[in-house]
Nucleic acid binder design. Structure first.
Lengths: 325, 325
DNA sequence: CTGAAAGCGCTAACAT
DNA sequence: ATGTTAGCGCTTTCAG
């Protein structure tokens, strides 16, 4: 008890009166061991408060010691999003019992080598890509096959877990149509972000089916861009009676600009968002839910349990009706 | 280039034509090495895209491989706070270049052994305590001395990094006084949370100096408790003309209840928060800033660089004037 | 200034 | 069923 040095497997083995191999087998739950041995090792480990050393395990297995969250984007500012915070924290929670940690890094959109550099690190036990492109997905090394998940678009080698953008957006557009809106515009996400396309496609599809023309302006998820986009929409199509934002931040920007210009929301123009951030309820924004934590938890779990996942897992997004539309 | 197996130090040494020891010395930047050797090793490492294996390093140094964020509280629900998300994500960012990961775990307020169990893991390279008590701080093992920081209250062995609660609260109370409020109540934090005491003390001190009586109701940072507290304040002291909330969530609850009861804010009762969360600006809440990310970054940096820190580092909190007070 | 050798804690053949 | 042995990738005395 002197220096209270954390016990090693050798300590456990000695106390249990067996060899290290036997102790290893029962602790790791692999291979054979007699009930007696099992019992004694368990007891010893318990008494000593033994915790396996994950570094040693990682070393022998060549398996790595942390989960890398690679956030793709134009600048490191992509890491400042609360979406990233939620995802990272949720994963850090999932990792804890596995003795793994989480690391976040920004991957520049236009310097693909950076991903390779990051994944060349043997310390990386698993990889979660956030907002990735298909090109980047193809750079995921073999070593990480089966240990990578993309939150966003996926690929043949990397399964994806994501929100059902299409379903959520469809619910929103249908609602707008149901309440009589017919000249519906959309502020989209950035071009390169494939997972945002599903929203746009849902919007287009529904409008096409209804015989309505699409009115699209490119945005980037930010409120600032939302403001500018609102102006652009009304300049190009002055009779617009609804604007679908790709995100809540976008919608908030749109509403701000509209009100500043004397346009009434929702009377003149209905506005919707996506994500249902806390702010959305405060300003009564109609939107669609986005369970980020649950998605991140699912992604991390898939990687950590190293279990084969379907190519795509979509979490449902529910319409959240409030005052803005 | 075949399987693109990440290079090991042995590879680097071979390519550089030196021994592993020498390569180790120049890579780790420790010990002697001739300029020639230094140069050749650098070149080889560069060409091979060598990344040191952090598990192996951790193993030999016995130093651990991840930063543990221990969040103290009554239930695991304390992990659901966006404050925790921000802190964890910020640390995961700081850790990346060190080859370390981050893990979050809840530490029950009343089961102190849990902390010991968590820190008995050799994989833990450093410890960040969040919202801790003094009793728990005393349980931080020797091994982690100089590798622990508390965000909140500190101790002789564990330095603290925190927001200047006292200063922020003082600025708020002074403002309230300056605009003519004289019957100022406060909804405090939970009793056990020592770092929240500083706010209460600042409030009491200022009121005492002004010859005004303190009016305190115990809260718990939640909006729900804020609502109840608002009722209690007005029941006990009906002439209250200002309520200082320990957090923005508390203040939001207070405002909600007040308005529901037909009390005008700020006309009848001024209300203030603390933290300046995004919602605060949306509802025009007067509050004080709380740079969580910067604080978390500072805490993690101190641990990772293993540098001696002052017993307490306080980040300034700035008054944010809006409409609610 | 450099290399040889031992060892961090654990696992996985391979004997027994 | 259990023990022996070698080795994961790296650092670090200790000799040269």
């Amino acid at each position: 008890m002197a220096a209270h040095r954390p016990a090693t497997l050798a300590d456990v083995a000695r106390v249990a009166g067996v060899s290290r191999s036997t102790a290893s087998r029962v602790i790791a739950g692999t291979g054979f061991a007699s009930p007696t041995a099992r019992e004694r090792v368990r007891a010893a480990a318990d008494r000593l408060g033994y915790v396996p050393n994950s570094a040693a395990r990682a070393l022998v297995h060549g398996t790595g010691v942390r989960l890398l969250v690679a956030v793709v984007g134009a600048s490191p500012a992509v890491l400042d999003d609360s979406y990233v915070d939620q995802a990272v924290a949720a994963m850090a929670r999932v990792c804890a019992p596995y003795g793994l940690g989480v690391t976040v890094q920004w991957v520049p959109l236009d310097v693909p080598d950076e991903l390779t550099r990051l994944t060349d690190d043997r310390g990386v036990a698993g990889l979660i890509m956030l907002n990735t492109t298909t090109a980047l997905l193809d750079l995921v090394p073999r070593r990480l096959r089966g240990r990578s998940v993309s939150i966003g678009i996926g690929s043949a080698a990397v399964p994806s877990v994501d929100i059902d953008n299409g379903g959520g957006t469809a619910a929103i557009v249908r609602h707008l149509y149901a309440v009589g809106r017919r000249r519906i515009a959309m502020v989209t996400g950035p071009r390169w972000l494939a997972c945002a396309h599903r929203s746009v496609e849902a919007y287009r599809g529904l409008l096409r089916d209804a015989g309505l023309p699409a009115r699209e302006v490119t945005g980037d998820f930010s409120a600032a861009r939302g403001r500018a986009a609102a102006r652009e929409v009304l300049r190009r199509w002055p009779d617009t009676d609804a604007i679908v934002g790709i995100s809540d931040a976008t919608a908030l920007g749109v509403i701000g600009q509209l009100r500043a210009d004397g346009v009434r929301v929702p009377d003149d123009v209905a506005v919707t968002g996506f994500d249902d951030i806390p702010l959305a309820s405060a300003v009564a924004l109609t939107t669609a839910s986005h369970p980020v934590r649950r998605i991140a938890t699912a992604a991390a779990t898939t990687v950590l349990e190293h279990r084969p996942a379907p190519a795509a897992t979509l979490f449902p997004s529910a319409l959240v009706l409030r005052d803005s539309a």
